[in-house]
């Protein structure tokens, strides 16, 4: 398993920097990051606010450009793509989960998922995606009729329904209490186990790290420490 993952590198970054030039000072959000993410791997990115983890996730997800350095998704060089190509890339390969769910309030759970399945090349049925996150019985409910945890699980269903190669989650449990947070994490883990979707989860919550294959710690725009979990624990056993 370990060997196979190494053989299939999904993301590779080479000395990536991201500089925000405010005119007076230059802020290095990323100050040279070399990173590889492997196929089927669930990675947790940890670090304090402003350490660069979100910036990196945005660049990997094709939402932002690096200031310098190369970013590869398989053999696709993301750093060379224009806006249209990045949209194509996101559409075909990436699933996003946001901290604040970002569901469309005027669409029901099923329809929110259908938003993505309508445009994806090889999607699953919205009903199946929602069943995967345990919401098979809430298909026709609108966001206003669901709890935060349910809304986030709809967001996950929406992200995975297109069978993405990678799933990028930015603080997916940030707005949730521990009990609902665990159901969301469980959903993420199930997807990862079942489909082998390469998953990166940003979190402030260090206890979540134990469910990951690897934990990458960020500090001041660099990778501080990489830790490999030999034994992963189930989300339900996580002490919040």
């Amino acid at each position: 398993m370990e060997e196979k993952r190494k053989a299939e590198i999904v993301f590779r970054t080479d000395d990536v920097t991201k500089v925000y030039d405010t005119g007076e000072v230059k802020v290095y959000a990323l100050a040279g990051v070399d990173l590889e993410l492997f196929s089927g791997e669930l990675t947790v990115l940890l670090g304090p606010s402003g350490s660069g983890k979100s910036t990196l996730l945005n660049i990997l997800g094709g939402l932002d450009h690096a200031t310098s350095g190369d970013v590869w998704f398989r053999d696709l060089e993301l750093s060379k793509l224009n806006d249209r190509e990045l949209t194509r890339y996101r559409r075909d390969n990436v699933g996003f989960v946001f901290q604040f769910y970002n569901l469309v309030p005027s669409l029901s759970a099923r329809e929110n998922v259908a938003l993505v399945t309508d445009i994806a090349p090889d999607p699953m049925r919205p009903e199946d995606a929602l069943s995967l996150v345990g919401l098979g019985h809430r298909l026709d409910h609108f966001p206003a009729e669901m709890s935060g945890g349910e809304q986030q699980r709809v967001a996950i269903a929406r992200a995975i329904a297109k069978r993405p190669d990678v799933l990028l989650c930015d603080e997916p449990t940030g707005a949730l209490d521990s009990k609902t947070g665990i159901t969301v994490l469980q959903a993420l883990k199930d997807i990862n186990d079942q489909f082998g979707t390469t998953t990166a989860v940003i979190t402030h919550n260090a206890s979540i790290r134990k469910m990951a294959h690897r934990v990458i710690r960020f500090q001041d725009g660099r990778i501080g420490e990489v830790e490999v979990n030999d034994t992963r624990i189930d989300p339900k056993d996580i002490q919040w």
């Binding site: 806006d83 996101r90 559409r91 996003f96 970002n102 469309v104 993505v116 445009i119 992200a159």
Partner: peptide, 12 residues
């Protein structure tokens, strides 16, 4: 909403 959709891969 629209920005979310852009992120999800909707074109401009």
């Amino acid at each position: 909403e629209l920005a979310s959709l852009r992120i999800l891969g909707f074109t401009n």
